[in-house]
Design a protein around this nucleic acid. Structure first.
Lengths: 217, 217
DNA sequence: GATACTATTTTTAGTCC
DNA sequence: TGGACTAAAAATAGTAT
């Protein structure tokens, strides 16, 4: 089905800008993912904060940050000042959020394993597709369900985006924030920060919703 | 000349914070170098701009940037004129954070269960009471990949975390903030408009990172 | 754009200098 | 902290969906 020629496998490449546009795009996606993964691992293994900002060839912005991009950037820009702004949120650590983060982190690891184990059993589950299956007594979800979950999440993401547009409109009609200036980083930061394990990093992507607006969510 | 024990070669490690201080430091140095190298390669191969900021366990700051950190950070923070970061407003009380969190938690539990059962058979479970909070039918589901689910989850995690944080911040600082309500949702937006900056092609090999690429404070 | 595959190329954990 | 070394763990180029 899919065996053309012999030579398969990684090829060595020269370190210079890739000529073929198409190839460049693929490489960019792969390596960007790889870079973010490396960063994530570094965060987890060494418990450090990292921020990465990448401007894609297409003009989009991809960012990665632990605990988030802005806190790191802020800390970078103002080395002397202790992140005061962030304390607004950090003042009262929310156990639920941490719990959520922990769960998601575990989930991600699980999915990795699940993915490896086998997608053979996936077919069997195709038939068991239901509406709102996520509400049902969850005891066992197959890959089919996971796929549905994925779609559902994307839908959610889309909805949030719409809302973001509305919100933005509202903001522009108002003045500004008490202590948030255009070039100052605002509140943000979630997940555990400080020390102790967990890989609550975040990989984000900018999504375009309007003719000239990118919402990051 | 140096053959102490047998076990040589790379060992697999678990993704959690390294316990041994000494080991952690070594790993940090190596991986940081590796991360920067990857970033460098991405710059060269794809001709894109990147900025990386890393706060070491020792409190130092390491950064990598092409063409330099500040330009990328600046571009990230000031996509254009107006636009305020982290605008928080609740235009319409649509998305309820609590519900969202509940759903996510629920989904996570579901997946946890799946993992434990070791992907047994997938019998159908009754629909059960539902409350399509995002009101979006998810019937026509294509053959998705777990990898995508993973990405979606990571994005969602960030989204939920941020919203929850902002919500808390709103509650704590409700006295004085414009239109913030206890159940308001926060959405942040960074723009990347117009500026296309298609990374110049004059990217010279960034071999070893020169003193102008590494900043060690 | 993102993924799947697979043969190779790279990266790197552990340990010693 | 920065190499050196070995061998196993990861990342990934090229190609096709």
């Amino acid at each position: 089905m899919v065996q053309k020629n012999a030579i398969q496998g990684r090829q060595k490449i020269t370190m210079k800008k890739i000529a073929k546009k198409n190839n460049l795009q693929v490489t960019f996606s792969k390596r960007r993912a790889g870079l973010f993964k490396k960063a994530s691992e570094l965060c987890t293994l060494c418990g450090v904060d990292i921020a990465i900002i990448v401007f894609s060839p297409a003009g989009k912005v991809f960012s990665f940050g632990h605990p988030n991009v802005d806190s790191a950037v802020h800390r970078f820009l103002t080395p002397n000042t202790s992140s005061v702004h962030y304390d607004i949120v950090q003042a009262h650590p929310n156990a639920n959020i941490r719990e959520l983060n922990a769960q998601i982190t575990n989930l991600l690891e699980m999915l990795e394993g699940e993915k490896r184990k086998g997608q053979a059993l996936d077919e069997v589950r195709e038939a068991g597709r239901r509406q709102c299956w996520w509400q049902a007594p969850i005891h066992e979800l197959g890959l089919s369900e996971l796929q549905q979950l994925r779609n559902a999440l994307e839908e959610l993401k889309r909805n949030v985006g719409k809302q973001a547009n509305l919100m933005r409109a509202a903001v522009e009609c108002s003045n500004g924030w008490p202590f948030l200036k255009p070039n100052s980083v605002g509140i943000s930061n979630f997940g555990t920060q400080g020390n102790e394990t967990n890989a609550s990093s975040s990989i984000t992507q900018m999504h375009k919703f309007g003719p000239d607006l990118y919402f990051d969510f």
